[in-house]
Nucleic acid binder design. Structure first.
Length: 697
DNA sequence: TTAGGGTTAG
C-alpha cells in the first residue's frame, strides 16, 4: 500500500495542485527571470545608488558572488524589515508579492522556517472550519508554492519544506513535491534526500522510504552518515527492524563511513525494542572502543534492552557504571530500571524503587505506577495491581489515562466484566482523550459486559474523533456481534474490515460458519445443523470466504467443506460450484454427489457439462450423475451440442458411457438431428472399451 | 538559519 502511494504520487505533478494563482505567478516568474538575466548590472547599480563606495561597485561587477555580498550589506535593514513584515502579516502570500524584488532565496527560506518552527500549519483564512483531514491549505504550503512558482527556491528550501511536511504529517504532499522537482541534480542533493527520507520515516512509511532510497541511489545520490542514521531511526518501530538495521550498517561501512554517537544511539534503541540485549551490549562496547563516550540515552537504551530478559543484576551493574562515569541517572533511567525489576517479577524491588522515585520527585506522573500495575496484573496479582492503582489516585498522581487503560484491560482479562465496564465509564467521565488503544480497551469492556448502547456510542465517538479502527477493534466487534446474534452487523463489520485491508482471522471465520457462537467444543453435527448465522446469511458467508481465499493464504480443508455444504444446502449452486472447482479434493464424495444431483436441475447447462466431466474423472464408476446428465439434455434438445461435446471428450480420454445411459441415448438419438452421430460416437466408445478389456485379460 | 538520533506505560 505504501509503495503504491509512492507510485501514485510519482504520477502527480506538483503544479497540478496549484491554484488559479499559477498563471499569475508563472507570468511573474518569467518577467522576473528576464529582468535578472538581462539587467543584473543595472539591478546592482540600483542597489548601490545611495552610496559612493567604489570598491563595492568594482566587486559587484567582477563576479556574482561579489554582487551578492554587496546586496546583502546594503539592503540588510530593508530585507530584515521585509522579512518581519511577511512574518507578521495575516496574509503572507500577498505580502510576499510586495517584497519579492527586495528579498533573496535565503530570506524566503527564513520566512518558511519561521512559519514551520512556530508550527502554524493551519494559520490561514481558508482553513477556518476545515478539519484536520484537509491539512494541505496550510500557511507554509502557500508560501512554498509561491516560492516554487517564482523560482525563489534552492535545496535548503526543499530541505526545510520536507522537514515541516514530516512534522505536520503530510508525507504524501512532500512526495508529490519531491517527484515534481524539475532539476535532477537537486533531486539527488543529499540534504534534500535526507530530509524527505526523514519525513517519510517520521510518518511510519518505513518500506516506501527504503524503496525511495534505492531509487535515489540509482539516480546518483551519494548517501552520507545522516542518510543512514535517518533510515536507521525507522528501524526502531519497524517489523524486522533489526535485520534491516544490520543491512544498513553493513552498507554504510562498505561506503567507508564510520558510525558516530548518534548512529550508535539509534542502534541501541533498535536492539532494545527487539529485546536483543547481547547485540545491544556488543554495540555499546564497540562504541566505547571507538572513543565515543556513552551518554544518558545510551545507558538507558542498554538498560531497556536488559529489561527484556529481566537481567536485573546486569542492569544494576550498568547503573553503577554510569554513576562512576560521572553521569547521574535521570527519571527515565530509573524508571527503566524499575521496568527491569517489574518484567523480572521482582515486585519488592520495584516497590522500593518506586518509593525512591517518589522521594526524588520522579513519580509525579503515572508511568512508574503503570509499569508495576501492568506487570503485577499480568503475573496474576490483580489485587496488588488494584492497590497500586488506588495508591496512585490517593497521591493525586497526574494521569493521562494510561493507568485506566491498563486496569480496564487487566479486569477484562480477569473476567471482572462489570468492574471493567464501570472503570471504562469512569474513564469517560474524567478524560476527554482517546486514542486507538484506549478505544479498544473501552470497547472490549462494553462488549464483554453486553452494553450495546455504550458500544454504539463509542463507535460514534471514534468517527467524530477520526480514530481509525485496527485489526483488534474489528475482532472485538465481530466477536461481540456474533455472540449477541447480531449477524448482519457482524458481516458488515467484516466487510468493512476487509475493505480497510485487515485480514480476518481464519479461526474466527471458522467459528462463524459453525454458528455455534464461540464455543470451542462444537461437534460435527452442530456445525452442520445448528448454524443460524450461516443459514440466514449464506451469501454473506460466501463473500467472507472469498475474502479469505483472495488473501492468498492456504485455508484449512474443513473450511472448504463447510462452506460447500452450506451453499448447497442454501441452493446457491453456482457459488458452490466456485468452491468445488478449486477444492474438489477437499470435499467428500457424498457432498459432491448431492451437489451434482441438485445442479442437474439448474439452468447452467455449460456448468452441468463441467460437473459431469469432473465426476467422470473423479468417480469413473459412478453412474447416477452421468445418467442424470443425459436425461437432462434429452429433456432439453436445444442444448444438444453440449452433450455431444461431452461424449466426444469421453471418447478422446477413453471413457465409455454405461449401458443404461447408452440405451437411453440410442432411443433418443433422433433428438440430435442426425441419428448417425450418436450411434457413431457410442460404437466408437464401445469398441474402445472392448479393446481395453481384452488388453487387460 | 539545510538534513540525522536515542531512554519509560496501555
Amino acid at each position: 500500500m505504501e509503495v503504491s502511494a509512492v507510485c501514485l504520487s510519482a504520477t502527480t505533478s506538483a503544479s497540478a495542485s496549484v491554484s488559479p494563482f499559477l498563471s499569475f505567478f508563472g507570468a511573474r516568474k518569467i518577467r522576473e527571470r528576464g529582468r535578472t538575466l538581462t539587467s543584473l548590472s543595472v539591478a546592482v547599480q540600483e542597489t548601490q545608488a545611495p552610496t559612493t563606495d567604489s570598491a563595492a561597485t568594482t566587486s559587484s561587477t567582477s563576479n556574482s558572488r561579489g554582487s551578492l555580498s554587496v546586496r546583502t550589506r546594503f539592503n540588510s535593514p530593508v530585507r530584515r524589515s521585509s522579512i518581519d513584515e511577511v512574518k507578521a502579516c495575516s496574509d503572507p502570500v500577498s505580502a510576499l508579492s510586495r517584497v519579492e524584488g527586495v528579498l533573496q532565496v535565503q530570506d524566503f527560506n527564513i520566512i518558511l522556517r519561521h512559519f514551520g518552527e512556530s508550527r502554524r500549519w493551519s494559520e490561514i483564512s481558508q482553513c477556518i472550519g476545515l478539519t484536520n483531514a484537509i491539512p494541505l491549505q496550510t500557511v507554509e504550503i502557500h508560501i512554498f508554492d509561491w516560492m516554487q512558482n517564482c523560482g525563489k527556491i534552492n535545496f535548503a528550501s526543499y530541505s526545510s519544506f520536507f522537514k515541516y511536511m514530516g512534522l505536520s504529517r503530510n508525507p504524501n504532499k512532500a512526495l508529490e513535491i519531491y517527484y515534481g522537482i524539475p532539476d535532477k541534480s537537486l533531486k539527488v542533493n543529499v540534504s534534500v534526500c535526507n530530509s524527505i527520507l526523514g519525513c517519510m520515516m517520521a510518518n511510519g512509511r518505513f518500506d516506501s522510504s527504503l524503496k525511495l532510497f534505492e531509487l535515489m541511489k540509482d539516480d546518483g545520490l551519494s548517501p552520507d552518515l545522516v542518510t543512514y542514521s535517518t533510515l536507521l531511526s525507522g528501524c526502531i518501530k519497524a517489523k524486522h527492524g533489526y535485520s534491516k538495521a544490520t543491512q544498513l550498517v553493513k552498507e554504510l561501512q562498505n561506503k567507508g563511513l564510520s558510525m558516530d554517537s548518534v548512529t550508535y544511539g539509534t542502534l541501541l534503541a533498535i536492539c532494545a525494542s527487539n529485546n536483543l540485549c547481547n547485540e545491544a551490549e556488543m554495540y555499546f562496547t564497540q562504541m566505547k572502543n571507538e572513543g565515543h563516550s556513552p551518554n544518558v540515552f545510551h545507558y538507558s537504551s542498554l538498560l531497556n534492552a536488559y529489561s527484556g530478559e529481566g537481567k536485573y543484576l546486569k542492569a544494576e551493574k550498568l547503573v553503577n557504571e554510569m554513576k562512576a562515569s560521572g553521569l547521574a541517572p535521570n527519571k527515565v533511567t530509573l524508571t527503566t530500571l524499575l521496568k527491569v525489576y517489574a518484567r523480572g517479577h521482582l515486585f519488592e524491588k520495584s516497590q522500593e524503587l518506586l518509593s525512591e522515585l517518589e522521594t526524588l520527585g520522579y513519580a509525579a506522573d503515572e508511568m512508574p505506577y503503570c509499569i508495576i500495575m501492568d506487570h503485577l496484573a499480568k503475573a496474576g496479582h490483580l489485587l496488588e495491581a488494584k492497590k497500586i492503582f488506588a495508591q496512585m489516585k490517593e497521591k493525586d498522581v497526574k494521569s493521562d489515562g494510561y493507568s485506566y487503560s491498563i486496569m480496564i484491560s487487566a479486569l477484562c482479562r480477569d473476567g471482572s466484566l462489570n468492574e471493567a465496564k464501570e472503570l471504562a465509564k469512569d474513564f469517560e467521565k474524567k478524560f476527554d482523550k482517546y486514542d486507538l488503544v484506549i478505544v479498544n480497551n473501552l470497547l472490549r469492556a462494553y462488549c464483554n459486559a453486553g452494553d450495546l448502547e455504550s458500544v454504539m456510542h463509542m463507535l460514534k465517538k471514534m468517527d467524530g474523533l477520526s480514530i481509525n479502527p485496527d485489526w483488534n477493534t474489528f475482532h472485538i466487534l465481530i466477536k461481540y456481534f456474533c455472540r449477541e446474534k447480531l449477524y448482519h452487523l457482524a458481516f458488515k463489520t467484516i466487510e468493512d474490515m476487509n475493505g480497510k485491508g485487515h485480514q480476518l482471522n481464519e479461526t474466527l471465520f471458522s467459528q462463524l460458519l459453525s454458528g455455534g457462537g464461540f464455543r470451542s467444543n462444537c461437534n460435527k453435527s452442530e456445525v452442520l445443523s445448528c448454524s443460524p448465522l450461516v443459514m440466514g446469511f449464506p451469501s454473506e458467508a460466501f463473500s467472507i470466504y472469498n475474502m479469505l481465499r483472495y488473501s492468498k493464504r492456504t485455508l484449512c480443508k474443513s473450511l472448504h467443506q463447510r462452506m460447500f455444504s452450506i451453499l448447497v444446502r442454501a441452493g446457491l449452486l453456482k457459488d458452490a460450484y466456485v468452491v468445488m472447482k478449486d477444492n474438489s479434493q477437499s470435499l467428500s464424495a457424498k457432498s459432491l454427489e448431492k451437489f451434482a444431483m441438485s445442479f442437474m436441475k439448474s439452468e447452467y447447462f455449460g456448468l452441468i457439462i463441467c460437473i459431469s466431466k469432473l465426476f467422470v474423472l473423479l468417480f469413473p464408476s459412478d453412474k447416477d450423475v452421468f445418467s442424470t446428465t443425459v436425461s437432462r439434455y434429452i429433456a432439453t434438445p436445444a442444448k444438444k451440442d453440449l452433450l455431444l461435446h461431452l461424449l466426444k471428450w469421453m471418447s478422446v480420454l477413453g471413457y465409455c458411457v454405461d449401458s443404461s445411459s447408452r440405451n437411453l441415448l440410442l432411443k433418443n438419438a433422433h433428438l440430435f438431428g442426425n441419428k448417425q452421430i450418436i450411434a457413431e460416437i457410442l460404437s466408437k466408445q464401445h469398441g474402445m472399451s472392448r479393446k481395453n478389456k481384452t488388453n487387460k485379460t
